[in-house]
Every structure is written in structure tokens, then in C-alpha cells.
Design a protein around this nucleic acid. Structure first.
Lengths: 151, 151
DNA sequence: CTTCTATTGTTGACAAAAGCAACTATCGCT
DNA sequence: AGCGATAGTTGCTTTTGTCAACAATAGAAG
């Protein structure tokens, strides 16, 4: 792999982070931060329902996560119910308000994607999507990135 | 653009943020944060040499940036010299140590990319790079993301 | 069934990152 | 000369994230 290739890839990385990736700030005009939105998504759609799963999936400090969950619970977006089988754990689930909020976030995120692709013909769009799949299927996950944080 | 497409793209976005994009944490084993590394890069390679340019390029708060620069200067990585033409401004430039540090960062970043691609054949690597170019050339920049921050 | 270690989650204390507003000095225009 | 805009700094605050200690429970080993 030559340095021209590497240069290309790093340029793409910068490009991507600044455009598609939602800047870490934009809660998509909701009152939620990016992490909070991500939590709702993981709980509501990806079946993670305990803190430990979220810690592993999102690589957050468990203390930090605990407080995030408290905040979301205070805001009425999710609830903690005791786990009958494992009394250390608490089962997390979205409230109706939480599901609404998540739906809103999804809709906003979808809209943002649509705006990014608005000038493309269907063929171009397909090319991009295919390109994304190529990347996703080929690029390895850096082992150095697999274990950090989570205490 | 159908919702299946959107789903694909958002999945890629999550994938990308977690793997290729260097997690915001990894200063690549230097003593620098990601922002600081980015500052060195912008100053040392992309010809930005005033605070205001960095504010615009990286979308940082100018107060925050001012302190970041102070820190880098204290660490001997860059210097501020008065701009003769505009006495409000200060010209930023890397010191020898700053250039060394930048070289190190670049090398580490390059290595990381290499690790990600290590299992790919040259043909596969080329496919990915081409895919990245396709994306970069086609995807628009969200106008909503163009103006935030910078007071 | 007791004991020991590992796990889940919470909390307090703290550090680092980021944002906001007020301020100074200078610029460029009229 | 006067005035609004601009570059940068500083103080203050909020937000975000980290670390360590802790309680409660689990699960395995004897």
C-alpha cells in the first residue's frame, strides 16, 4: 500500500467526518446529545437492554453511562425495571415518549441523509451505496480500537 | 431514495465512526488530543496560519482555540509571531519540535490505516479507495452544517 | 451452605473539554 | 475623526468524561 493510497484514505476520513458524520454536536435539533440519541437507538432498536451491554457496545465509562441513563429516565424517555433473573441488573426500555423521541431522531437523520443525496441521480446514489458496502465489507476493525475504555 | 437505502447509509455511518474514524480518543499514542493534532496538521500542512482561519476550518470556539494555541505554544510545538500587516493578527507556525510531532502523528496515522487494510489484497484495497472517491465526489455538503459555532 | 471472586450498577470527587460573554486593540471605511 | 467590524484574549460556567470506592448479587469451588 503506497503513500498516495494512504493519503487518499486519510483525506476521505477527514471529509467524511466533517460532512456525513453529524459533527458530534447536532442532536438533529432535538434536546438530546449525540450519545443520548445513540442510547435510545441501541435500546429501542438494537435490543440492548442493560447498562453493561451499552457500555460494551458504545464504549462508555459505566459511571458516566449510569448518569446518562438517570438523565433519560428523569426526562421520561426510558425506564429501569428490575431484572428478575439477575437482581444486580436492571432492564432498560423506552417509554412511549422515548419511542416518540427516537422516531423523531430517525426521521431527522433520514432527512439529513436525503439532503446530502438530493443532487444525485438514482444511479449515482446507488454507486455511493455500493461503495459504502465495499468499504464496510473489506476494511478490518483495528484491534487497537476493540478494547479501550469500559473499565 | 427509499428507506432501505437510507438504512444502509446510516449503518455505514455508524460503522465508519466506530472503526475508521479514530474515535476522538486515540491521539495515536502521543501526548496530544485529536484537536491539537488537527491544529498541527492545519498549520503545518494546510497553510492555515491565523487563529481565525482555524476557527473557520475546524469550527472551534475562538476562546477555546486561543487556549489550545497557548498550550501548544507552551509545549514548544508552535509559535505566534506578530503579523506586520495586520497588528490584530498573529501568524502561527510550527517549531522544529512541532514539525517532528506532526511527522510522528502522520506516521502513526498512516500505520493505523495500513493495519486496517492489512488483510486486503491490492485489488480489494483499490476497490475501497475507488469507493471512497465515489462517495467524496458525489455526496453534497449539508448546508445546515456549514455555518455553526464560531460565534 | 459457606466462602471467595467476578459482575452490575451507583455515587462522589475530580479533570478535561467546550462554550459564552465581555473586553482590548486594531482595521477599514466614510 | 468616528464607527462598526474583526482578531484575539480572558474569566466564568457548563458539559462531558474519568477514576476509584462501594453495595448488592451472582456463580463457582470446596
Amino acid at each position: 500500500m503506497n503513500s498516495q493510497d494512504i493519503h487518499q484514505i486519510r483525506a476521505f476520513d477527514r471529509f467524511y467526518t466533517q460532512t456525513l458524520h453529524l459533527t458530534d454536536k447536532y442532536h438533529l435539533q432535538t434536546t438530546l446529545t449525540l450519545v443520548e440519541a445513540r442510547l435510545l437507538l441501541e435500546i429501542g432498536e438494537n435490543g440492548r437492554n442493560t447498562a453493561i451491554q451499552l457500555v460494551q457496545e458504545l464504549r462508555l465509562d459505566k459511571g458516566y453511562l449510569s448518569r446518562l441513563i438517570t438523565r433519560l429516565e428523569t426526562n421520561g424517555l426510558l425506564q429501569r425495571t428490575p431484572d428478575e433473573r439477575d437482581k444486580r441488573a436492571k432492564v432498560l426500555s423506552l417509554t412511549a415518549a422515548g419511542r416518540d423521541q427516537l422516531a423523531l431522531i430517525n426521521q431527522r437523520a433520514d432527512d439529513q441523509i436525503r439532503r446530502l443525496f438530493v443532487d444525485l441521480t438514482p444511479e449515482e446514489t446507488q454507486r455511493v451505496i455500493t461503495a459504502m458496502q465495499v468499504i464496510e465489507n473489506h476494511v478490518a476493525i483495528d484491534p487497537q480500537l476493540k478494547t479501550p475504555n469500559q473499565q
